[in-house]
Each structure stands twice: as C-alpha cells, then as structure tokens.
Amino acid sequence: MMVLSRSPAARAARILARCAFYVGMIFLILPIVVVVISSFTAGDVVSFPPQGWSTRWYGIAAGRQDFLSSLWLTLVLAVVVTFISLVLGLITALTIVRGRYRGRGALSVAALAPLFVPNVVIGFAALPVMAAIGLLGSIWAVLIAYVIIVFPMIVRALIGTIESLNSSTEEAARVFGATPLRAFLTVTLPLAARGIFAGAIFSFVAVLDEAVIIAFIGGTNTVTFPMRLFSYIAETYDPVASVFATLMIVATTALMLVLDRLIGFERLGSNR
C-alpha cells in the first residue's frame, strides 16, 4: 500500500481495479434491487422500471393460498431435514475426527461423496428408486433426497468445528467420573454449539434454495416454495412472483445477519 502509487502503470492498474470493484458491486446488487422494486409496480406485468407505484400486489399475494402453503411446507421441510441431518451429521463428523479404526478415511470420503454429484443427477437418480418403493410425489421422497444433499454439507462444516475443539476438557470431565456420553453432552457439545448452529442455517438455506431435485420427484402435491416460484415465473409474468421473491430476500438477509453474529464474515467463505 505504501509504495503503490509510484509508477504510472501501477497507478493505472489501481484505478482500473477500483473501477472493476464498483462496476462489479453494481452487477452484484442491481438485480436484487430490481426484483424488490418490481414488486411495488402498479402495472399488471413485471417491468423495470415499473409503471407507477403501488402496494396492491402485496394484497393480491396475501390471498395466494398456493404460495402460502408452499412456504409453510418448505419451512417444515427445512426444519425436519436440518434436524435429521444435524443428528446424523454430528455423529458421523465426530467419529470421522475421533475414530481410531480402519476405514475411517473411507467413511469420510463416502460421507462427502454426494457433494460431488450435481443436484440434477441426484434428482433424476432418485426418480426410479422412489417410483419403485412407491414414494414418488410424496413428502418422504423429498425428505430423503434433501437429507442426502444436506448431510455431507453438515459433515464437512462440523469436521472443521470438531477438529478445532480441544478434547482435553472432555477428558478432564471423564477423569472426574463422567460417562463418555455425559462428558460429551455437557462439555463438548456446548463448545460446538456455534458451529452446529451455523451448519443448521446452511442446511436451512439449502432447502430454501433447492428447485432442481424437487422438479423430478416432487409431483403436484409436494410443491416447495422455490419450486412454486420456478414454475410460476416460467409461465406467468405478473408481480406476484416479485412480492414473494422480495419477502424471501428480506428473510435471507435476516438470516445473513444471524450468521454474521455467529461465525463472523471472514469465515463464511470457507464454510461451504
């Protein structure tokens, strides 16, 4: 920094880099702002800039039972998927980090393997299996497929958390007579709480985000919010979609603030 502006070439490069930053940030922010603004249009179709201002689409959106029930379904699904994945993922991450047996390395490879399979492939692969066991189109099919994609994310996040924990406190508790389970629950688990909670939020966001797998196995009865939005905007062009998108943007921004409190922004990039 101290010697940066010495040569004209360096100065030009720095000005160029700054311009690239501002243009890049506009590219990043503008589309989200456009969605929010388009929800306040008075016109009948989505357009930017909007034709007059009004909040009437919010009133119309409030009466859309299909979107509201999709939102509710997605929230329930996100909670259940997160809970199951956290329990299974925590135990798996623990035994990957602390296990003293052969095959531990293979387990960690297997547990993270689904991360390397594109969602569209998992979605289609689930189709014949779910059809064969009669779950196609049911909430159970979606639940199983979502745990498969969320589980490895949680394992990966928690391996880091558990590795960073010093196990000597837990050992001390056991020297004083606590059972292994009790020592773990009372000493280590609270220390890992932040990592676990961050993992939970990532899981939650993954479910809110997913509109690919559900397109294969969801059927007409199990339409989650992202799927509802996806099929709606593929066919219709009215601002109802913008209203629900805006609500979602507000919600995920709130989640972001919670995440910031939990893990700090510097670590966010390394977590997923």
């Binding site: 922010i29 589309p31 456009v34 388009s38 809110l208 939005l229 979602m248 972001m256």
Partner: peptide, 22 residues
Amino acid sequence: IAIVASVFLVTFVIKIYAWQIL
C-alpha cells in the same frame, strides 16, 4: 462482505428471476 453474503444467500431461483426481468 455483508452485502456479498446477502446476495449469496438469496434463493437461487430469485437470482435468475432477476435476470429474466433485466
């Protein structure tokens, strides 16, 4: 970083919807 993280967390379909409009 907060701005980047917020955009990161916005639902994927919404990000593409934005470009549909644009």
